[in-house]
Amino acid sequence: MESKGTRDGLFFMGFFLAASIVFAAWISTNTILQVKAQEKTIKVKGVAEKIVRADKGVWGATVRARGNDLKSAYATLNRDMNKVLVFLKESGIPEEWTGTSPVRTMTINVYDRQGRPTGDVAGYEMEQEVQVGSDKVEAIRDIAKKSSSLISQGVDLMARSPEYFCSDLTGVKNELIGQATRNARERAGQFASGSGLKVGQLNSAQQGVFQITPPDSVDVAGYGMYDTSTIEKKVRSVVTVEFTMAR
């Protein structure tokens, strides 16, 4: 038979054992909290921009012609395409800069008052593309401006806006990523200066999208931008960087 003293001893032993476990858990938790409190980090965005100049220009246009039959439509198109090619040559555009597409032919059908095809053919429309490309971007800009003079010669011309591209964007991007990362460290230092901390090691870095815009533009897009309308462009890089903060 178990005595009262034995029961009391077991009770107090269990009590102290439970208390020891709780105390140890508190010490462990408190230590973790203290360690985490000492692990201060800061996440900032760094920005870098650069003005670059396009080294490739492209301009294109569509020449269209109509005729009652295929022969007359093609004769008109051929005549007008020759006018375009002569215009380019006289404007100082070398032949090797120029390319043309195959001719596209479309049938012009006759429709009744209800908009239903009658099966009759009213004529044919033909069109052909001409494109000029060069690293002489000013020449591309100038020929695009002058192309409207072809309309006064009776050419059915649908001209497009010239486009300008940069061939070494990879090098520019790598340069700007480095500058943006340094800018992020400077910003982190400004935040830390008033709190008695200093910027430590880089924990992580995430590259954002590149924005390529006209020089004076403030437009941005979440998926990035590549504006081709200007010869000079502004390339903007943003990186998000996390640093360890130390005393």
Rank of each mutant, 00 (worst) to 15 (best):
V47P: 01
E95S: 13
E95N: 06
E96K: 12
K56N: 04
I42M: 02
K36H: 08
V86C: 00
N68L: 14
R66V: 13
V63P: 11
P102S: 03
E96A: 08
E39Y: 04
I93Q: 05
Y111T: 09
N78K: 15
Y111D: 03
A48S: 07
A37L: 11
N82A: 09
R79E: 10
Q114I: 00
P117H: 08
E90M: 08
K83E: 00
R79N: 09
W97T: 09
Q38M: 02
R113C: 01
R113D: 06
G67D: 08
V35D: 11
T41A: 07
Y74G: 03
E49N: 13
G46R: 03
G99F: 01
K50Q: 15
A75L: 15
A65P: 06
R64T: 06
A65I: 13
R64C: 00
Q34K: 15
N30C: 03
L70C: 03
V110C: 00
L33R: 11
G115P: 06
V86G: 00
T62N: 08
M106T: 15
K36F: 14
D112K: 09
D69T: 15
L70A: 15
Y111A: 08
E39T: 11
T105M: 11
Y111R: 00
K83S: 04
K83Q: 11
N78Y: 11
A61Y: 12
I42C: 09
M81I: 14
A75C: 00
I32F: 07
G67W: 11
R104F: 06
A65T: 14
W97V: 09
K83D: 14
G115Y: 03
V35G: 00
S91H: 05
W59C: 07
A37I: 01
K89W: 09
